[in-house]
Amino acid sequence: MKRNLYLSVLIGILILVFTTTATASAAAEVLDRIVAVVNEDIILLSELKARMEPYTQRIRQQGFDTDKERKMLFNVREEMLNRLVDEKLTDQEITRNDIQVDEAEVDSTIERIKAANSFTDEDLRRFLTQEQMTMEQYREKIKEQALRTRLVNYQVKSKIVVTEEEIRSYYDSHPEVYGGKRHYQLRNILMRVPDFSTEAEKQAVREQMQQLRHRVETGESFADLARQFSQGPAAADGGNIGEFAKETLSPQIQSALDGLEPGQATAVLDTDLGFQLFFVEAINRTEGKPLESVREEIHQKLFTEVVDKKFLSWLESLRSQSHIKIIN
């Protein structure tokens, strides 16, 4: 029965033609054809071309070689055809579930869009003219989007629950976001390498720094060693260079500090200024964000992640239960 329905739909499509009067006899050219069948509906080549047009223009303006341009256009065609199939499926589900949006809701949505963009009614109409779209077409597009949103709410969102345990687990597992930031109170020893030094001279400075690091590890005061040997501007203050949030330090120093506790020194670092040692005097952490202040933020994040996964799963299930035929 369904097969007969498909055949009747296919047979019933009129092939659009036009005639030319350039010669005495009229010639006809096929303007449209079916590129996909989605259950009882069809997708026409003209629909696909209209959806592809903005992307096609952008690709052709990039100056790619012929082979790359062809591949990119093929990928866009596949992507846009899949989107059209998904839209047909969701539209069919909208009809099946008798989901409706009235004109008042469309009016309200357009007013919100105008307010968000500081548009007057004239501004909106001017914008639509630039986009080659009538107000009637725009209203229809808004209505389609509202219907699809309502379908997602009905099929997916209404069935999702984010628990308090999930919120707390996410909060606890992201201390770098919610638990405050680490601040390091640092001292350093800097030994410069003179310009035009030989490799042997540079190695000698490195070995001297390694010896200083060993002395720190065996218990000598880093501050005393800094006063005696450092060539940095903070030498007189025992190498005390202040407190820093970790993310404000260079990647090289951040990496060297990983895993260190107060009272420990980094490895000898070869930097633009010369060889350096950094000593962790103290580690302080700024006050984190209480769970109560970020609960809604975390809930929304988790909810959105689940919605995205559930929607894709629902759409895949819908595809598997549907008759979809792609006609190349």
Rank of each mutant, 00 (worst) to 15 (best):
K2M: 12
Y6F: 13
Y6E: 09
L14A: 13
I15D: 12
F18I: 10
T20G: 02
T20Q: 03
E29F: 13
E29L: 11
R33T: 13
V38P: 04
L44H: 03
T56E: 06
I59F: 04
Q62G: 05
D65E: 14
L73F: 05
L73G: 02
R77C: 07
R83F: 06
D91F: 07
D91C: 05
Q92V: 04
Q92K: 12
R96C: 04
E105W: 00
I113P: 00
K114Q: 13
F119R: 00
D123T: 08
E131Q: 15
M133E: 11
M133Y: 07
M135P: 01
E140W: 07
K141P: 03
K143I: 02
R150V: 07
V152E: 14
N153Y: 09
Y154H: 15
V161L: 14
T163L: 12
T163A: 10
R168N: 09
S169F: 02
D172R: 14
Y184C: 06
L186Q: 04
V193Q: 00
T198G: 15
E199D: 14
L212E: 01
R213W: 06
V216T: 11
T218N: 09
A223R: 02
A223P: 03
A226W: 02
Q228D: 06
F229C: 05
Q231E: 15
P233G: 08
P233I: 12
I241P: 05
G242C: 10
F244N: 02
S250V: 02
I253K: 11
Q254I: 05
A256V: 11
L257E: 00
L269D: 01
T271C: 07
A282M: 05
T286W: 01
S293R: 08
K310T: 13
L312T: 13
L315M: 13
E316W: 06
L318Q: 15
I326H: 06
N328K: 09
